[in-house]
Structure formats: structure tokens, C-alpha cells
Amino acid sequence: NGQHIFFVIKKVSSGNTQYILLSYAPDSYRDDLSFTLFKQLIFILGTVILLSWIPSIWLARYLSRPIVAFEKHVKRIAQEDWDDPVIVDRQDEIGKLGHTIEEMRQKLIQKDETERTLLQNISHDLKTPVMVIRGYTQSIKDGIFPKGDLEQTVEVIEGEAEKLEKKIKDLLYLTKLDYLSKQHPAHSSFLLSNTMLEVVDRIRWSKNELQWNVDLDDEAALEGDPEQWSKLFENVLENQLRYAKSKIDIQMKQEEDQIRIVIRNDGPPIEEHMLSNLYEPFSKGKKGEFGIGLSIVKRILSMHQASIFIENDDLGVRYTIMVPKKRL
């Protein structure tokens, strides 16, 4: 009657007798079987979805809650509101993200405090020579010479102007180094001894009474920026001039894989509590002076993978600079 029948015919034996076994099923059986299996599959899927719904919601909240909190912290940090710490109580990947955000927050706070202190020190350091120049200038206008006569009074103004000029130049140079540290400047090979001699010849005249003992290795070569090293030696030797009593010793020699530069002066020793913050901008020295000379020195050395050690010895103060060697 137009229906399909599925059947199987096979021979079977029972004792000594053989039979023909016919098994058959109408086509509707296949549809009933498929429908039954489909209903069971739907039931199983519904049960799995129902049973997994609650833990899925809990897991989603467990994963998203700290991320939402981190997002709020990052938005507040972007608005420079970084007073509240990022509290993290887990050690997984999300916890590592939280620790990184907290570390960033602490560094931003430190950077902000450093900038505020730097601006305060700059304001204080530049205000003094400006006040002296203005005061002496007004005195000259009024016909008064604080130093006895016009020439000596003008010399004071000129000296304060030179101090002010140097401080401004150092600030600009420090800003320049900050920029260069993020770039990839082209370095060249040069003789470090020649750069040292040029700086010594240029500044030794400012205190002719000092004795200079210079012992340099003429083959000491370096891969770097000659202009930066000239500024470095200038700042170091200016410190030596400020504190030396009678002599300055400079020694430069090559070792196996580096160049050692030792600079000594016979001035008074540095206070122990000052040795740890000599390289901080505007750290106050023995004579009550602020400056950023050694901060510039430290920055240039870091850019050339070199190092410096300042310490007291029996003769006075010793500067030791270690530079990775590069032959021409």
C-alpha cells in the first residue's frame, strides 16, 4: 500500500532443523525512534542548561567583579585620583593584573611627589639669585653700592647672573636627557682621554692655585655621545673645584673589559648621610647649595651602561667611574 518495510532474512539452526528467520519493521518505526531520541536529547540538554545556570552566573560574577573594580580604579587613576589603593586578594591572572595596577598607582604617586618637590626646589633655587640681582640693581638705581663701589657691586650681580644661567642650562640639559633616553641616538667612537683633556684645559683656569695631576690612557676609546661625556666631566670637575683644597688627581686606565676613571680631591669628606642621595636633583650639599650636576652625571652614565661610586678616603673624596670598554 505504498509503505516501506525494512526487513532482515537469515538462516538459523535449532538442533537438526534449519529455519528462515524474517525480521521486519514498518517505515514509521524509524520516525518514532528518531522522535523519541530527539525528545530525550532535548530533555538532557534542558537539564544540563538548568543545572549549569546557577554555577555559570556565580562564575561570571566571580570573574567580572574584580575586573569591574579594576576598571573603576583605572578611570580614577586616569583622572589623577590615586589615593585609594587597589586591594587584591587572589593570586591568579586577574590577581596579577590587580598587583600590576597597584604598582602603577604607587609609581604615579611617587612620580607626582617627585615632580612637586622638583618644582618647589626649582622655584626656591632660582628665586635667590633673582632676588639678589633685583636688590642690587635697585640699590644702584638709588645710588647705593652694597659692596662699597659700583664695580664690586656689579661683580656680585654678574656672579649671580652666571649662577642663574648655569642652573637654567642644567635644567634644560636634564630635560634633554629625559628626551634622549627614550630615543635611539646615533653613537660614535671617540677617545675618552681627549674629551677629558679638553674639559680640564677649559675649566682649570678658574682656580689657578690648584695642582692638577692628570694621568690618562691615550688609547681609551668609547662608543657613545662625546657631547654628553664632555658635560659629564664638566659637572664632575666642577664639584672637584668647589671642594678641593690644593690638588685634583685624575687617572684613567683600561682594564680587561672596561675603563676605570678615578678622580680625587683633597677637600673635606662627604657626610655619611649625604652619600646615599648625592644623585638626587637639588640635594643640598655642605655649603648649602642645591644643584642637579650629579643627577645629570648619573643619567648620562645610565644611558651608556656605566656606573659611578663616590666615597671618602684618606686623601679626601674619590669618584670612581666604570665604563664598558670599546676599542676603535
Rank of each mutant, 00 (worst) to 15 (best):
Q3G: 07
Q3T: 09
F7N: 03
K11I: 07
Q18T: 14
Y24E: 07
P26Y: 02
S28E: 06
Y29K: 11
Y29W: 13
R30A: 06
D32E: 12
L33R: 12
S34W: 03
T36H: 10
F38E: 10
K39Q: 14
L41Q: 11
L45M: 12
I49H: 03
L51G: 01
W53C: 05
P55F: 14
P55K: 13
S56L: 09
L59Q: 02
L63D: 03
I67W: 00
V68H: 01
A69W: 03
E71V: 05
K72R: 14
V74N: 07
A78S: 06
E80H: 11
D83Q: 08
D84T: 02
V86G: 10
E93V: 04
I94T: 10
G98F: 01
H99K: 12
H99V: 08
T100C: 08
I101L: 12
E103Q: 12
E103L: 11
R105F: 11
R105K: 12
I109S: 04
I109D: 01
K111F: 08
T114L: 14
E115G: 00
R116F: 11
R116T: 03
L119G: 04
Q120N: 06
N121S: 11
D125Y: 10
D125R: 09
D125T: 15
L126Q: 04
L126G: 02
P129M: 00
I133E: 07
Y136M: 09
T137Y: 06
I140C: 07
I140E: 06
D142K: 10
G143E: 12
P146W: 13
T153E: 01
V154A: 08
I157A: 09
G159C: 05
E160F: 00
A161D: 05
A161Y: 05
E162N: 05
E165Y: 09
K167S: 08
K169L: 15
L174M: 10
D178F: 12
Y179K: 14
S181E: 15
F190R: 04
N194T: 03
T195Y: 02
V199K: 07
V199I: 14
V200R: 04
D201G: 09
D201T: 11
I203H: 06
R204D: 08
W205N: 14
W205K: 14
K207V: 02
W212V: 03
W212L: 02
V214C: 09
D215R: 10
G224M: 08
D225R: 06
P226H: 07
E234K: 08
N235S: 09
V236Y: 01
V236W: 02
E238K: 10
N239E: 08
R242Q: 11
Y243C: 04
A244C: 12
K245I: 05
D249G: 05
D249P: 01
D249Q: 14
I250C: 08
I250D: 07
Q251E: 12
Q251F: 05
Q254A: 02
D257P: 01
I261N: 04
V262G: 07
I263P: 03
I263S: 04
G267M: 02
G267E: 00
I270S: 05
S276E: 15
N277K: 11
K284C: 06
E289K: 15
F290Q: 14
I292Y: 03
I292V: 15
I292D: 02
L294A: 08
S295P: 05
I300Y: 13
S302E: 15
S302W: 10
S302F: 11
H304Y: 13
E311G: 12
N312L: 15
G316M: 06
V317G: 09
I321W: 00
K325L: 15
R327F: 02
R327V: 03
L328H: 08
